[in-house]
Computed example of a mutant assay.
Amino acid sequence: MNGAVHVERLDAAGRAAVGECPVWHEEQQALYWVDIPARRIVSLHVASARRSEWALPEQVACIAFDRAGTVLAGLESGLFAVTLDEAAQHRDGGPHDNASASGGALARRLAAPAFTAGGMRFNDGRCDRQGRFWAGTMVQDMSLASPAGALYRFDEKGVLSAPVVEGLITQNGLAWSPDGRTMYLSDSHPQRRLIWAFDFDTGTGTPHGRRVFADLHHYTGRPDGAAVDADGCYWTCANDAGRLLRFTPQGRLDREVSVPASKPSMCAFGGDGLDTLFVTSIRPSANAGDDDGYVFALRPGVKGLAEPRYAGVLPVA
């Protein structure tokens, strides 16, 4: 069950405070991710070790690309279309029409939920197999254990749904099975530590039949960001435990892989042939280890699935 896998620290990626939402960009052969409190989107061209970063006007927690290369991002106040200017990535910009610019990134707000509590933001998000963007909200002060968070769907027409799943404390772990007919969602708060599976109507984008897929009270760590491999197995980052846990589609734990960081946050498949698993991590504010906050890469012996693009057309920010 324990995976004897070599894990490489990608020093060229730099060190984040809260690294999250790795996304592999196949055409660029580059990994993108975010540093939430730093308000940064970061990329690393793996072969050349060339790193780029872009500043945003708010904390950014999740990203996806549309087919034109524009970024759909979940920030504090809503969902934004973000244009990344490679030539201006280190230049502070000014206002542009209804958009705001900062460090080469132009961000235009598209939609916002009705936040039900103060101090909320978007958290984990990604596209389903049909290209709808899903993202959840949370109260940033986790000590409050507020169940004000909810999961939303942003469809290809640019319409933000009403809450699809409510009562979440720290929404996380979004992923879909290879055929798209099972949706996974977790709550990583210490009081929850649950991963759920839903039957998923691919035509309407509606999850139903919610059930507990894995209860991490029986294992180690808290379920953070996740990815599904080509075999349909669900990989979750076990935050606070320095591990990746792989569950079969039947919910059976069949692999554990140790990583150097104590708080792995999210994983994504990428690289040539989608055979590399990239893992972001969090650097705790106190007692951080030397590896906390870095991005890691490992080859687990199984391939992943290409990350779906957002199916709609985002406006140029």
Rank of each mutant, 00 (worst) to 15 (best):
S52I: 09
L56P: 00
L56N: 00
V60L: 02
A61M: 01
C62H: 02
C62P: 01
I63V: 08
I63N: 00
A64Q: 07
A64C: 05
R67V: 11
A68M: 05
A68S: 15
G69M: 05
T70F: 15
T70P: 00
L72F: 09
L72G: 01
A73C: 02
G74C: 07
G74H: 12
G78A: 03
G78K: 02
F80Q: 04
F80R: 05
F80E: 03
A81D: 05
A81M: 09
V82W: 00
V82C: 08
T83Y: 13
L84V: 03
D85F: 12
D85R: 15
E86R: 10
A87N: 07
A87I: 04
A88V: 10
H90W: 10
R91Q: 15
R91C: 09
P95C: 14
H96L: 13
H96F: 15
D97R: 14
D97S: 10
A99N: 10
S100H: 09
A101V: 14
A101S: 12
S102Q: 15
S102H: 14
A105N: 01
L106P: 00
A107E: 08
R109E: 01
R109C: 11
L110P: 07
A111D: 12
A112R: 14
P113A: 07
A114R: 12
F115A: 05
G119Q: 07
M120S: 01
R121Y: 04
N123L: 05
N123T: 03
D124W: 06
G125T: 07
G125P: 10
C127E: 10
D128C: 10
R129W: 11
R132Y: 09
R132G: 06
F133G: 05
W134E: 00
A135D: 09
G136A: 07
T137G: 04
T137C: 08
V139R: 02
V139E: 02
V139K: 00
Q140L: 12
D141W: 04
D141Y: 05
M142N: 03
L144N: 00
A145R: 10
S146T: 05
S146Q: 03
S146L: 03
A148W: 07
A148Q: 13
G149Y: 04
Y152H: 08
F154I: 02
E156K: 13
G158Y: 05
L160A: 07
L160E: 07
S161H: 07
S161N: 06
S161T: 06
S161F: 12
P163K: 06
V164Y: 10
V164W: 14
V165G: 05
V165Q: 08
V165M: 11
E166N: 04
I169W: 00
T170S: 05
T170H: 02
Q171Y: 13
Q171M: 14
Q171S: 15
Q171L: 14
N172W: 01
N172L: 03
N172Q: 06
L174I: 15
A175I: 13
S177Q: 12
P178A: 09
D179W: 06
G180S: 12
R181Y: 08
T182A: 13
T182S: 12
M183W: 15
M183G: 13
Y184A: 11
L185A: 01
D187R: 04
D187L: 07
H189M: 02
P190R: 01
P190W: 00
P190T: 00
Q191I: 08
R192E: 14
R193T: 00
L194M: 15
